[in-house]
């Protein structure tokens, strides 16, 4: 038997073997479940990695730590706002103080 003939015969004999449409659908569904599970696992593993890193380096619970950081940022914002200088206010105050000084100076002369 020629090589080419052998290959052709083998291929034609093997065409009998195939999955049924139902079986293919079942496999697809199974694979989709695996794919979703895999995605969830990846997300979970990232979350788990962050938690383990946090607990490996500090004894403060992660949620308490996050809350403390939020409070810290809020406080920092308030402090910055309190000490922030408004340019218009500063100009008026400066002008007033200069005018006062001039009046006081005029009185002495």
């Amino acid at each position: 038997m020629e090589e080419r003939e052998f290959k052709s015969k083998l291929r034609s004999e093997m065409t009998d073997f195939s999955f049924t449409t139902l079986k293919k659908k079942q496999i697809s569904n199974q694979l989709k479940v695996s794919l979703i599970r895999q995605e969830t696992k990846t997300v979970n593993s990232l979350h788990a990695r962050i938690i383990s890193f946090w607990h490996g380096t500090t004894e403060i619970p992660i949620y308490l730590g996050v809350a403390a950081l939020v409070v810290l940022f809020l406080c920092a914002g308030i402090i910055v706002n309190t000490f922030a200088v408004d340019k218009t206010d500063a100009r008026i105050m400066l002008q007033e103080s200069v005018a006062n000084q001039q009046i006081e100076g005029g009185d002495t002369l």
Partner: peptide, 25 residues
């Protein structure tokens, strides 16, 4: 597939399943 595309799963099965089955058989 890496981006979790469900349709890609159908394509994978359509492309490879029967051929793999014949080889494995």
């Amino acid at each position: 597939l890496q981006n979790g595309d469900q349709e890609a799963v159908n394509d994978l099965v359509a492309l490879y399943a029967d051929r793999m089955l014949r080889t494995a058989t």
